[in-house]
Design a binder for these strands. Sequence first.
DNA 1: TCGGAGGCGTACCGTACGTTACGGTTCGGT
DNA 2: ACCGAACCGTAACGTACGGTACGCCTCCGA
Lengths: 219, 219
Amino acid sequence: MLQAGADIDTSETLTERQQAVLDAALRLLVEEGDNLTMTAVARRASCSKETLYKWFGDRDGLLTATVQWQASKVRVAPVDRKGLDLASLTASLERFASDWLKVISSDTSIALNRVAVGHAGSGKDDLGAVVLQNGRFALARRLKPVLEAGRQAGLLDFEDAETAFRTFFGLVGRDVQIRLLLGDRVELTEATIGGDAVRATQQFLALFGAKTGRRATDL
Amino acid sequence: MLQAGADIDTSETLTERQQAVLDAALRLLVEEGDNLTMTAVARRASCSKETLYKWFGDRDGLLTATVQWQASKVRVAPVDRKGLDLASLTASLERFASDWLKVISSDTSIALNRVAVGHAGSGKDDLGAVVLQNGRFALARRLKPVLEAGRQAGLLDFEDAETAFRTFFGLVGRDVQIRLLLGDRVELTEATIGGDAVRATQQFLALFGAKTGRRATDL
DNA sequence: TCGGAGGCGTACCGTACGTTACGGTTCGGT
DNA sequence: ACCGAACCGTAACGTACGGTACGCCTCCGA
């Protein structure tokens, strides 16, 4: 399952300067992809290579630090589940879907996923694990409580929250992420994202909504 | 949309020997990922580097040739749509889902997608386009006629075949592909694949099936 | 005022790898 | 038997880049 300690805080023990360096590295990563050089990072960050190596060990260390730094920036607050009715549940789901689509279509997410996928092949570091933890698994951790609350409120009907989540994930993402990663220019405006969010939510409610007392299957 | 001439036949104008070389390169690609060297390919294929460069130009040429060679091997026959009823439609959809899951979880597919994703960042070649054409878009081309036939037979109800296909795609794949690409060890046995195939098909039919005259939304 | 720590810039080293060059060998055609 | 083309194996070249060493500057505490 590869959940091995990949979500350590790591947000602190980073001085201002180091964060600035990592931001520069991140920007460069978005522009250049995995073929960014230590020299380029040093130049962009206006620091010396020696400092890079002292702080981050080696190239892989810098990369993982960069990925974790970006991950630590997107921590969001959990949703409140008081007074849950169908409208608020729907709104929550739509918001999750919309946020998620915005994230995976952002330049930095695409760049980060690209390098992580590339590195996942020859397992020198665990960039893939880090990205997974702060991407797909973080989303699950945040969404599952909402789903459980919806079930307890009698609005949703499912047996396994994990399965329900994965279906929602599929309905929202569809082919978007792989197409973006492979370089396809998918047009994702605010409008289409919003439309996809409500569509996915409606489809999810059609499959797992409990109000009619009938559902498709959950197997 | 990036459909630019990426599905040229390219299956011929390849001598036996060249195909063997590409097979060796493919095997090496699965083992080593994108950090395979020309020397390694030459050694594995028992040919000289000079030959590699004469045949394929440069490293990128060899890589694209390899990807296209693999793509040309998976051409499958279209499904027959005579005598379509709910049972046969269901079977077709389940078969598509099952085949698709088997493909994306195969070692070679994962390796190919990894290098394509990696190369999609710095666009020197169009590996991403090739993979996309022979992956996601090829599946769409094969599945859409089935969906259309299902609609004409009064079994399915949707407005846009593309949208319906993308939903099916999402229901089948969910988070599997990105997790595999990122190095997560997803357990995909024959049994789970089969189960996922029927689950996705049932969910799809629940959303787009026309028999009850009611569908969720198609937006 | 001074000394040392931290950090910048840069030159340098070693190596891996893409690419080229070259001698030797096989093989089909004449 | 001979010629040339295709090809194998390998050596060699050039370069890019990861990693290190060093000189100099700045700042800060004593």
